[in-house]
């Protein structure tokens, strides 16, 4: 049984101009211990899909799916209360802007401890010890001192480490990382990716990496889903995708990598638009 199984997921938003379909019948399957990358441009519906899984989309969103199951349990039919027992505990998520994602009014220790207080029966002192343990695990120096720090007193990289500590606090079975390195410096990006992979390997959890960076995909993923304008273009294991992409959009995406530049201009996906906009909906390796 897959850890997460989603079939024909459709998300529509009510807008002033009428319903807008942000996601049009995508499928995902993630097994325990697997790293799935969802790749695509801005507006391809990568984050929307995972926010739908987490139940974090606004009320204006209508979500339908033939199947949206976590460990065989249908997430769509769970009551809000039951779903909250899964969210943050068994499935957790980290976001693109680590500083903005942490509450500026509460200390780091409080924010991590809150997850433990919500989902475990640990006592106050046990929680404090576990928070220190988590901060150590994500590589925050002097964790005891950092407990009482506020997000604005930390760097972006440290805040992302805190977000990761918060996400892994209850040893989740699935971690969703929504462009976790986009807002960070290049040197920090590598450290955060290495940390995520290390934690994933140690715990055996499933990891969904949402990114638009093909470099991140190559470095981290076992399998890749390529999306464009809310539709799934291609799904393949990482080697096949880079070696022999099937869908013209994937080929365009790979052709637009900076290393493929010729002359004095970087290629863009738009240069290849004519190739993929007439192509069939999906290609699977």
């Amino acid at each position: 049984m897959p850890l997460l199984e989603i079939r024909n997921l459709v998300v529509e938003f009510d807008t002033a101009a009428g319903p807008f379909r942000a996601l049009d019948g995508v499928d995902y399957t993630v097994d325990a211990g697997e790293v799935l990358a969802i790749v695509g441009e801005s507006g391809s519906g990568k984050s929307v899909a995972m926010l739908a899984v987490m139940g974090l989309l606004p009320d204006t969103a209508t979500i339908t799916a033939d199947r949206m199951a976590f460990e065989g349990r249908d997430l769509a039919t769970l009551s809000p209360k039951d779903r909250r027992q899964v969210i943050g505990k068994d499935i957790s998520m980290i976001f693109q802007e680590p500083i903005a994602s942490l509450n500026p009014c509460f200390t780091v220790g409080f924010q991590i401890g809150e997850v433990l207080k919500t989902h475990t029966r640990l006592s106050g002192s046990e929680r404090a010890a576990r928070v220190i343990e988590l901060l150590k695990a994500v590589g925050i120096p002097e964790p005891e001192r950092r407990l009482s720090s506020f997000p604005h007193q930390m760097s972006g990289g440290q805040c992302q480490r805190v977000m990761i500590a918060m996400a892994i606090a209850c040893s989740p079975k699935l971690l969703i990382a929504d462009e976790p390195t986009t807002a960070l410096d290049v040197t920090i990006q590598k450290q955060i990716l290495d940390l995520l992979l290390k934690l994933q390997a140690e715990s055996g959890m499933g990891l969904i990496m949402i990114t638009h960076d093909m470099g991140v995909v190559a470095e981290t993923a076992d399998r890749v889903v390529v999306q464009y304008q809310g539709r799934q273009m291609e799904e393949a294991d990482v080697l096949s995708l880079f070696e022999s992409p099937k869908h013209p959009y994937t080929k365009a995406l790979l052709s637009a990598l900076p290393e493929n530049a010729t002359g004095d201009r970087l290629p863009t996906v738009g240069d290849f638009r004519a190739l993929f906009e007439t192509a069939p909906k999906e290609a699977t390796a």
Binding site: R84, V86, G88, F95, A100, L102, N103, F106, T118
Partner: peptide, 20 residues
Amino acid sequence: DYVRTARAKGLSPLRVIGLH
């Protein structure tokens, strides 16, 4: 974003709105 994070932690709506 931090309100979304609070919801992603599985906190109750009362705690998300009334505290965070």
